[in-house]
Amino acid sequence: MENETLRDLKISGITSTSGGLFHNVRIDGIGKVVGDLECVDFHASGKSNVNGNVKTNLVHIQGMTTIQGNMQAKKAVVHGHAAIKGYLMSDDIEIHGSLSVKGNCDSERFFARGSFSIEGLLNADMIDVTIHGYNRVREIGGAVIRIRKSPTRFARMFKFPFFTFSSKLVTDSIEGDEIVLEWTQAKIVRGNHITIGPGCEIGRVEYKNDLKVATEAKVKEHEKI
C-alpha cells in the first residue's frame, strides 16, 4: 500500500460516509461507514457501524463497533465491544472488553481477558483465556489451549462466590496438543497433554499422553488412545 497517496478518514461528530481505501481511520463520534473499508490503521472510539468488510493492519476498538461483514487484520485489540457478523481473521487477537463473532475466528495468538462469543470455530495456535463473564464458543482448536479463571476483584475482596458462578466457558469440543482447562463446560476434549482444573464439566476426554483431573472437576468418561 502506498501510504503517501492515501488519505485519512476522521469522524468526530455524527456522520455517515462511504468506505474505500484509507491510511488511518479514526471514529470518535457516532460513525457509519457504508461499503468495504481498507486501511492501515482502524481506530474506533465511539459508536461505529461498518456496513461491509474491513481489511486493515491494526484495529483498535474502544467503543462499540459493529461490522456487518468480515474482518481481516494483522492485529486486533478490543477494549470496548465489537460485534462481527462475518469471520474474523487476524494474526493476533487481544480482548479486554467483549467480542462476538458470527463466523469462524482464526488467529495465531488469541488472548482474552474479557468475554467473547464465537459461533464458529476458534482456531488459534496459542489460546490464552482468563474467564470473565459468560463465554460461548462452538468449537476450539489449536496447539496450546489455556483457559483459566481468576475471580473478579469484587468477589475476591468479599470472598463471595456468587459472581464467579455464572462466569464460565461453554463449548462443544476442544482439540489441541496441550490443554489446560478451568471452569469450562465441554462435551468433548481431545488432546495429548490434558489438565482439567476446578469447575469443569466435561462429557468425554480422549487423551494420548497424560491426563490430570482436579478433584473439583466433573469428568463423565475418559479414555487413553
Binding site: 482464526d106 482456531n123 488459534a124 495456535d125 482448536g141 489449536g142 496447539a143 496450546v144 482439540e175 489441541g176 496438543d177 481431545r190 488432546g191 495429548n192 480422549e206 488412545i225
Partner: peptide, 21 residues
C-alpha cells in the same frame, strides 16, 4: 475420522488446525 488421520500421519492437532487456518 480426524483421530485416525492424526494417528496415521503422525501430525498433531496444532499442525492440522494451523494448516486449516
Amino acid at each position: 475420522s480426524k483421530k485416525e488421520l492424526l494417528e496415521l500421519t503422525g501430525i498433531s492437532y496444532g499442525q492440522l488446525y494451523r494448516w486449516k487456518r
